[in-house]
């Protein structure tokens, strides 16, 4: 990488850090139930891509950050009432959410994809889905896609957690599930997920994942600068490689 760019990033980081120090601690929320992006590891600590990114950004901003777990459903209301200052929880930037909160630039991109049992045909066209039982996590992009685009043909089932979706896939209650493609990548390789596979091609690929902050919060600029810095200095790439063998930005 270009030396000048590095120096520039450093300068930006220093600027950002003074700003951060002038402010106070940054409290960051994540869900802790969306492996490999955010989950609780064997030591009981929050870990995953989101958490690594959050920590890298904080190191870049030299800010004093704490990462806390928060249930998905209450995430945005809690942000708005200042329970924490930012959400780094693989949250897609959507129009509906933008009415409530602000987002930074995206830190990775995703798309939706169907999955279902191996050996069973699941035609993912709207016609082919007619009468099928399809599940997704409540208040995710996948869940909203189900409700908005497919609820007239399929039987929609919404769950509190992605784990519950997996449980019901295994139990055979669902003909298929819609989810962000990347988080399911790991599960499909695991013991429990090995009998399932992606169905059809990824869609809604313009799904951009960003960091949510309160409206008009100066944190937005700080996060954006730090994000650009870790992308430029290679930190982002290292974190990416830790979880996926292909770039997800």
């Amino acid at each position: 990488m270009n030396k000048w760019l590095k120096a520039g990033a450093l300068a930006v980081a220093t600027l950002a850090s003074t700003a951060a120090m002038a402010g106070d601690k940054i409290r960051i929320a994540t869900e802790g139930a969306w492996a490999p992006f955010n989950y609780v590891n064997e030591k009981g600590q929050l870990a995953g891509f989101d958490v690594d990114i959050a920590n890298a950004l904080c190191a870049e901003m030299k800010a004093d950050c704490t990462v806390v777990a928060q249930d998905w459903d209450g995430m945005i209301p809690a942000l708005r009432v200042r329970k924490f200052d930012a959400i780094v929880a693989s949250m897609s930037i959507t129009e509906e959410r933008l009415k409530q909160v602000d987002f930074t630039d995206h830190y990775y991109s995703g798309g939706l994809r169907f999955m279902g049992a191996k050996g069973k045909v699941l035609d993912t066209s709207k016609m082919g889905l007619k009468g099928k039982v399809i599940g997704a996590q409540r208040s995710t992009v996948g869940g909203q896609y189900l409700e908005d685009k497919l609820s007239d043909v399929v039987k929609v089932k919404l769950y509190d957690t992605q784990e519950a979706v997996y449980l019901d896939l295994i139990a055979g209650r669902l003909d298929g599930a819609i989810s962000d493609e990347l988080p399911t990548y790991d599960w499909l390789k695991s013991d429990q997920g090995k009998n399932f596979e992606y169905k059809g091609e990824p869609f809604a690929k313009n799904d951009k994942i960003g960091i949510a902050i309160r409206k008009n919060d100066a944190l937005k600029q700080k996060f954006n600068k730090a994000l650009q810095a870790i992308i430029d200095n290679g930190t982002y790439e290292k974190i990416n490689a830790k979880y996926f063998p292909f770039p997800i930005y």
């Binding site: 409530q100 409540r138 208040s139 919404l158």
Partner: peptide, 9 residues
């Protein structure tokens, strides 16, 4: 109610 809130916050 929970499903509606997931959309309207």
């Amino acid at each position: 109610a929970r499903t509606i809130i997931a959309r309207t916050y």
